[in-house]
């Protein structure tokens, strides 16, 4: 009950705000969204232009095991590589893997979730079974096993391995949503007009699930970055790949932790945490922004009640 109380109550002002002053201004009012966009934007910028300023970040230097200094902002590794350069250049591959694996996982979940949910019947049952099976298999061990079997552990195989093990939860969410939307009157109205199935799914149903899809994508991206870091840390990634996870792996291998070289593992670790937090903040901010409006459509009665007539309460 308390949950419904709060959700219904936020509708009135949110709706008013969206109508009154445009989505953009409402978006700018969400501090979480702004903070998240700033963090992620910073890393994207880092990933795009950063590598241009550094030659080969794996270049071996003469200054080894050095702490942060003016010459080496983040210090150096056991073989004299500049950690700052590695961190900046590592942002690109990390983001690429996160974005690509997240995208593939989301596409798969959209096809299986929305497709199955709309098709119904045995197609739906089969796809639902598939996603349930995929869901109960513990993901990271599976990634480890698959990654161990795939000999080439470069960028693309990593992306696919992570994507194909992380779509199931989101497919389930989308299927549930589709099951509820496909019987709504506006979908029936499209059917009664004789709209082709693909149009009903793509134009009438999918836009209504866009907020969920975006949110699932952001989560999939976080998962992919963490999964890649995990794989790299376990040594299941090609050492040629330069990601934050790989930097962590080399730091671990050189016993940076026990020898006190904190500057080696702290920057990539913090970057991963910060990027994850930034993506999560965007997610929460979007949720704040979009969900009240969605709920307005789903519950016309609640909407009217919240707008002018009262609040939901237990006695």
């Amino acid at each position: 009950m308390p949950a419904t109380v709060t959700t219904q109550l936020v509708e009135a002002p949110a709706e008013a705000a969206v109508r009154g002053s445009g989505v953009l201004r409402t978006a700018l009012r969400s501090r979480r969204l702004i903070a998240g966009l700033c963090i992620v934007g910073f890393f994207v910028l880092l990933g795009v232009v950063g590598p241009l300023f550094f030659g080969n970040p794996n270049l071996v230097g003469t200054v080894q095991h050095a702490g942060p200094s003016a010459a080496h902002w983040f210090g150096t590794t056991d073989i004299g590589q500049d950690v700052f350069a590695q961190t900046v250049v590592g942002a690109r591959a990390t983001l690429e893997i996160g974005a690509a694996a997240g995208l593939i996982a989301t596409v798969v979940s959209v096809v299986i979730g929305i497709g199955g949910g709309y098709a119904g019947g045995w197609v739906d049952e089969a796809l639902a079974l598939l996603s349930n099976v995929a869901l109960v298999i513990p993901t990271l061990p599976l990634v480890i096993v698959v990654a161990a079997f795939v000999k080439n552990t470069g960028l693309l195989p990593t992306v696919f391995v992570i994507a194909l093990t992380s779509w199931a939860a989101s497919a389930r969410v989308l299927r549930g949503q589709t099951l509820s939307i496909r019987n709504r009157d506006y979908v029936l109205a499209s059917k009664a007009l004789g709209e082709p199935v693909w149009r009903i799914v793509l134009v009438e149903i999918m836009p209504n699930e866009l907020p969920i899809i975006v949110s699932q994508y952001l989560f999939a991206m976080i998962f992919a970055i963490l999964a890649q870091a995990g794989l790299a840390f376990l040594g299941l990634q090609s050492p040629d790949l330069l990601t934050w996870g790989n930097t962590l792996y080399f730091a671990q291998n050189a016993q940076a932790l026990s020898s006190g070289d904190w500057w080696w593992f702290a920057p990539p670790g913090l970057c991963i945490a910060l990027l994850g937090a930034g993506l999560a903040l965007i997610n929460f901010g979007l949720d704040e922004l979009l969900n009240p409006r969605l709920r307005v459509y789903r519950e016309p009665r609640a909407r009217r009640a919240a707008r002018a007539d009262g609040t939901e309460t237990g006695q």
Binding site: D185, Y186, L188, A189, A192, L193, N208, Y297
Partner: peptide, 29 residues
């Protein structure tokens, strides 16, 4: 068949797609 027989639903809050404009709803048919 669909051209010849059309229907009006009970709940006007549910029968229009919240994501689309009024014009979209009329263009399709």
């Amino acid at each position: 068949y669909h051209k010849t027989m059309q229907l009006v639903f009970q709940d006007p809050f549910a029968s229009l797609n919240p994501m689309h404009t009024v014009a979209h709803h009329l263009r399709r048919p």
